[in-house]
Amino acid sequence: MPDLSAPGPGRSGVIHDLGYRHFDGVREGSGAIARTLFTTGLRHAYGLGRSGKSKVMPFLLLAMSLLPATIVVGVVVLTGLADLPVSYADYTNQTQLLVSLFAAAQAPVLFSRDLRHRSIVLYLARPLSSHVFALVRWLSLTVAILLFTAIPTTVLYAGAMLAGLDKSDQTTDLLKALVLQVLLAMLVAGVSGLISSISLRRGFAVVGSVMALIVLTGIVTVVQNIAWYEADSETVPVAVGLLSPWSLVNGLANSWDAGVDTVVPVDGAWVPAYAIIAVLLVAGCLLGLVARFQKVGSR
């Protein structure tokens, strides 16, 4: 190629100012933009693509929730137990503190940052609407939480297969647990996301989510136990179970025979009640998120 702008003597090259260049390539549609937003959000929930410091918390929590699973797998494989000492669904329940902490710590990353720093304005001046933005953010957090619960469960399942446990039984239990985890992730992401989008200070958002997910569940459990053991009531413990995301999912797991014990078995008309309340809670959180982002966008 003839070089018309040959570098002068003593200079190794010439920097050309090309001037302003227009972009005439393909512009993606809203679907592709939403997918990019979803992937970025999912990565950010685990600190990927962010500072090194922001990876510590999610991966530390994930490691902590994986540790018991690997120990269980080791014990089952080495000692040749006939069954897993904990069911798949109950494992998630037993590690609920870690799951709740993960949601409480990471929801502000997806829901507070853009609002607090007002970068939401820049998003909303782009093709995606505030509704889609809010829903995609929620979906990112839901999948992040689902991965958080599904990874240890999958490790347990792999261990069960290695130990030669019955494949069809284990697979059925695993699939039940995964369905329940999807519901759980949708609920927890909705609750913690809504709280984070309202209280923009990270500290307040974390405390708010901890209150709603951990403290509330603790209160529900205490009330259920008191009502059952002291007052000998069957209705009160089941009814109180409607009040927290964890007790909702555990109640459904119990009625579905997924290996989770509750204070009082959930059966009869309570089962549809639990399911309806769970769906309504998810829907309510989504409506709240959409309304919140729409309001912020018009300011």
Partner: peptide
């Protein structure tokens, strides 16, 4: 990121 949010690859 903002360019991607406007639909650029």
């Amino acid at each position: 990121h903002m360019a991607r949010m406007s639909g650029l690859g």
